[in-house]
């Protein structure tokens, strides 16, 4: 299991606010890494630096290094669009486009120049199968994506992200707007996907991190408090603050 994402001495500022302080970590490939911590601890911010979605927030400043597969993604030569194609993202709120199910999944491939109907059909089917949604929607691909339930919409968003063939999938509290059954489905899906993709998820649900992830990172006030194998972090935390958090004493 090699390292795919290498973060070194990363500082991030929103204007005067120091949101991430000296964050260093190696995220292994083809595994699930979970970021946990109380609200405002910087876990989502770090996630959004990995596909440079923070670029769009005015006043953001970054120091340090983030390399994906050995390439510094904040260097000037890096094309943000290509990076985002390689680093897919699923958001907290399911956000399918107000288009048909088919057009949602085909959106990414079309962006990147795939025009042939046969090829698109194939990508749509494989992506929907990977997101375990195919059987539910295969008969009405032309229907509006907004007619799906919240859990289905979120799986559609995962399929949409997979359709551009990324290496990494970022999940930003992807289940927090869903009911328990849909949440479980997404968790199972993540388990299946980790054989083929590197998954980094932010969750405010410690049990979810314990259930699905291989590594867990605990954040507090913009700092990494503890980073280790999930099992070890939850059963035998090194840091007192981690123990306080996972035993529910704060947060």
């Amino acid at each position: 299991m090699g390292t795919l994402i290498d973060i070194g001495k990363l500082h991030l500022y929103y204007g005067a606010f120091h949101a991430l302080k000296n964050v260093s970590m190696d995220i292994p490939e083809k595994a699930i890494t979970a970021f946990i911590g109380p609200s405002g601890c910087g876990k989502s911010t770090l996630l959004r630096t990995l596909n440079r979605m923070n670029d769009m927030i005015p006043g953001t400043r970054i120091e340090g290094r983030i390399a994906v597969g050995g390439t510094d993604i904040y260097s000037k030569e890096v094309d943000v669009e290509t990076l985002r194609k390689k680093v897919g993202m699923v958001f907290q709120q399911p956000n399918p486009f107000p288009k048909s199910i088919y057009d949602n999944v085909a959106y990414g491939p079309r962006l990147h120049g795939i025009r042939s109907k046969g090829q698109l059909d194939e990508i749509v089917e494989t992506s929907l199968r990977s997101a375990v949604l195919w059987d539910e929607v295969k008969d009405h691909l032309k229907r509006s994506a907004l007619s799906l339930s919240g859990g289905q919409q979120q799986r559609l968003c995962i399929a949409r992200a997979l359709a551009v063939n990324p290496d990494i999938l970022l999940m930003d509290e992807a289940t927090s707007a869903l009911d328990p059954i849909s949440t479980l489905k997404i968790e199972e899906l993540a388990q299946e996907l980790k054989d083929r993709y590197t998954i980094v998820m932010v969750t405010h649900n410690m049990h979810q991190a314990a259930r699905v992830s291989n590594q867990t990172v605990f954040f507090l006030n913009g700092e990494v408090v503890e980073y280790s194998d999930t099992e070890k972090l939850f059963s035998n935390p090194r840091d007192q603050r981690t123990e306080d958090y996972i035993s529910g004493r704060f947060g």
Binding site: R84, F91, Q93, N95, Y107
Partner: peptide, 22 residues
């Protein structure tokens, strides 16, 4: 809604593509 733009940018589209297609 901003979430549509986010989704589009996260899939690797440029600003022009996002405006025209989403």
């Amino acid at each position: 809604p901003k979430k549509y733009r986010d989704a589009s940018y996260a899939l690797g589209s440029t600003r022009f593509q996002t405006i025209v297609r989403v």
